[in-house]
């Protein structure tokens, strides 16, 4: 058994670990950068919306909310009918 064959697996393991560490650092840095940029991008709009909510200005009903209300309304109508009967 030569020195190089003994060292090869160890070297491979070391290199793989090193690469993984670098990849993790890179992914971490990218995630932080992305989150910071996104926060920066939406911060003034978020503050504005918070201000409006605090001032009691009505929030827009989104399509999903409208549909949910409609569904609830239909269910309530059904239960009303059942109660009247």
């Amino acid at each position: 058994m030569t020195v190089s064959t003994i060292c090869a697996p160890a070297r491979l393991e070391y290199e793989t670990a090193n690469r993984l560490k670098h990849e993790q650092v890179l992914v971490g840095a990218c995630t932080t950068l992305w989150c910071n940029s996104e926060n920066q991008l939406v911060s003034s709009a978020t503050q504005w919306r918070r201000g409006r909510r605090l001032a009691g200005m009505a929030k827009v009903k989104r399509t999903s909310e409208m549909e949910m209300e409609r569904r609830n309304c239909r269910t309530n109508r059904g239960s009303d009918r059942r109660t009247t009967r």
């Binding site: 003034s44 709009a45 504005w48 919306r49 409006r52 929030k59 827009v60």
Partner: peptide, 12 residues
């Protein structure tokens, strides 16, 4: 503003 869309003139 009514639609809650944060266009620049509405917010800034």
């Amino acid at each position: 503003s009514a639609a809650d869309v944060p266009m620049m003139p509405v917010v800034q």
